[in-house]
Simulated assay, not measured.
Amino acid sequence: MLTIQGMTAGNQEWAVTAAGLVKRFEDRRVVDGIDLMVPRGAIYGVLGPNGAGKTTTLRMLLGIIEPDEGARTLLGEASPRDASDRVGYLPEERGLYPAMKAREAIAFMGALRGLSWSEGRRRAATMLEEAGLGHAIDEKVRKLSKGMAQIVQLLGSVVHRPDLIVLDEPFSGLDPVNQEKLEALIVAERDRGATILFSTHVMAHAERLCDRLAIIAGGKRRFEGTVDEARGTLPAQVHYQPQRPDPALAALLPADARGEGEGWRFTLPPGGIEPVLVRLIAADHGIAGLTIERPGLHEAFVRIVGGRAATGEAAA
């Protein structure tokens, strides 16, 4: 029985587990000993720059490719393919039959997972209406925009109401309107009780959606935890505005304080801001403005994986 960090993977608390996954292509270790534990009913993000090993990791978890080392379970099954009818998968490489109508494309994907054709068509019509695509129910896929086709393929991935939904870079190529639709659909599926596992290299989606996340780079897991825990790897920044500009007050501020216009910026001290404020007020510098800014997930990501590795994310 697989055990990771003292926790039993066969426990129904986990939708997906992985221990020491390794995959080599020729002489390169694309995935290098990754551990994951995805709680049931959570939205879990696998984050990393382009080429980090995200897609390869997801494919191993799903049983599409076999790991060279390590073990994994999917919905309690040691062999991922035994759980395939309970999984919905949207691969990074999109693909629909262009001559199919939107409703039939969704029903067809459901039929591949054991859903009856009539029920698949009924659900497809409802889902297209709810996604704002009711006008495209009988439109052939070849006539749909890229964003609309991507939403259709996503609906086909979840029409059979799977327990686990795996999405590989689902937001890639979508305009802001369709990104919002996709985010709403992901949340709705989680609220239905499904577990969502998705990969991305764009931090904004993960910051809004994820209950937990893993950050990988160079085929290794660099971080695992909540968004707040990731952000907590960097200290908060303080921006202080005195009542009167005075270079002499620098002696009362932390050593890393630097001037910004008529104010100062510095790292929030371990003891909090109160001792600094007491000194400033006692010296009659006063407080015209004060903000404490927590770092975002983007900044934490760059810190965790390294600026060079994060270049792909920053450009996205």
Rank of each mutant, 00 (worst) to 15 (best):
M1D: 12
M1A: 15
Q5C: 07
G6M: 11
T8P: 11
A9C: 13
N11A: 15
Q12H: 13
V16E: 00
T17H: 10
A19L: 10
L21H: 05
V22L: 13
K23M: 02
F25S: 08
F25K: 01
R28C: 04
I34L: 13
L36H: 06
V38P: 09
A42V: 06
G45R: 03
G45V: 05
G45F: 06
V46Q: 12
L47Y: 09
L47M: 14
G53V: 04
T55K: 08
T56H: 09
L58Q: 03
L58S: 02
D68V: 01
D68W: 02
T73G: 02
T73C: 07
T73M: 15
L74D: 10
L75F: 08
A78K: 03
D82W: 06
D82H: 15
S84T: 04
D85E: 13
V87K: 01
Y89T: 09
E92L: 02
R94D: 08
G95S: 15
L96K: 01
K101I: 12
I106W: 14
G110E: 02
G110F: 14
A111W: 13
R113C: 04
L115Y: 11
L115M: 10
S118M: 10
S118H: 15
E119S: 14
G120R: 01
G120S: 10
R121C: 15
A124V: 09
A124S: 14
L128A: 05
E129P: 00
E130P: 03
A131E: 06
A131L: 05
L133H: 04
G134L: 07
G134E: 07
G134K: 00
A136V: 00
K140E: 15
R142P: 03
K143P: 00
S145F: 07
K146M: 11
M148G: 00
A149W: 03
I151Y: 02
L154C: 12
L155P: 07
V158N: 01
R161N: 12
P162H: 12
L167N: 08
G173M: 07
L174P: 00
P176Q: 10
N178Q: 14
Q179R: 10
K181R: 15
E183W: 03
I186P: 04
I196W: 05
L197R: 02
S199V: 06
H205D: 11
A206T: 07
R208E: 13
L209Y: 06
I215Q: 04
I216T: 11
A217T: 11
G218Q: 02
R222Y: 10
F223E: 08
F223Q: 05
G225V: 06
G225E: 06
G225P: 06
V227D: 05
D228Y: 07
A230F: 12
P235W: 13
Q243W: 03
D246M: 06
D246I: 12
P269T: 01
P270V: 08
E274Q: 14
E274R: 15
V276F: 04
L280K: 14
L297I: 10
L297D: 08
H298Q: 14
V302M: 01
V302C: 07
R308W: 03
A309W: 05
G312W: 12
A314Y: 01
